[in-house]
Amino acid sequence: MTVIDVMCEMTAVVWKLEKSVGQTVSEGDIVMVLESMKMEIPVEAPSSGRITEMLAAEGDSVSEGDVLMRIEAEA
């Protein structure tokens, strides 16, 4: 099983979690929405799989390089 880190690409605030731990996602699904400078920035699942860990909560400040969540990729 490959565990993939979903990385944050910019300084932002977590606006909305679209998925939760245990849910299965497909590559390209929007898993989270960040807000930065009045803009909504959707975060897409980098690959299909199951979310095993959620490392950010709504309202959290996040920075470039932070791990937002982990996805256990499909074999």
Partner: peptide
């Protein structure tokens, strides 16, 4: 603006 034109004008706070 604090933004990156080559990354579709994504905000670039810092």
């Amino acid at each position: 603006y604090a933004e990156n034109p080559s990354k579709s004008f994504m905000p670039s706070p810092g």
